[in-house]
Amino acid sequence: MPEWLFEEVKDEIPKFVGVTTGDRVLKKAKNVPLELPEKELYINLVCALNREANKYYTNLDKDKLSKYKSAINKYMKKYENESNEMKHWKREYYKLRQQVEGNYEEIFNCNIIK
């Protein structure tokens, strides 16, 4: 907590709560007796850690899923581009073939060569 903020709220902070700036202790914490049984505190701690772990793995799964989706989209675009290029060259091939067949129609119809 920044020192200027501590000065503004120090009267609202309970006596047993400590305050630090990260590198310096502004108010030392005091030991107080536990209000709950120790076993119950451990159970609460484990439950909280489990929730945090679930959040981490859920986000991790979402990150992996988004990476897979972006990879799939990338390959789909690449496939579309290559497919369009293949169609283009196929059309060009048929145009050239028609030109050649037109120029050498007698040969293809086997009128000259028997």
Rank of each mutant, 00 (worst) to 15 (best):
N109C: 09
K90F: 10
G22K: 00
P14E: 07
L96W: 12
C110Q: 09
E7V: 03
A29Q: 11
F16R: 11
P2S: 15
W89E: 12
N59T: 06
H88L: 12
K55V: 10
P33Y: 01
I113F: 15
K87L: 06
S66K: 14
I43A: 09
N81E: 02
A71T: 15
G102Q: 01
K55R: 12
F16P: 06
Y42Q: 12
L49E: 13
K55A: 07
Y56V: 08
K90S: 14
K87P: 06
F108N: 08
V100L: 07
N50D: 09
E106F: 08
R51C: 04
A53D: 07
K64L: 11
M1F: 11
N103K: 04
V17I: 11
E8D: 09
R24A: 02
K74M: 12
Y56R: 01
Q99E: 10
A71P: 02
H88P: 05
E105D: 14
M1G: 14
Y104E: 15
N50E: 13
L45A: 08
N103I: 01
L36Q: 03
N84F: 09
P14K: 00
N109R: 14
K77E: 09
T21H: 01
K67A: 13
K95H: 08
K15Q: 06
M76F: 05
E85N: 15
A53W: 04
E82T: 01
P2Y: 12
K67N: 12
Q99P: 01
D63K: 12
C47P: 02
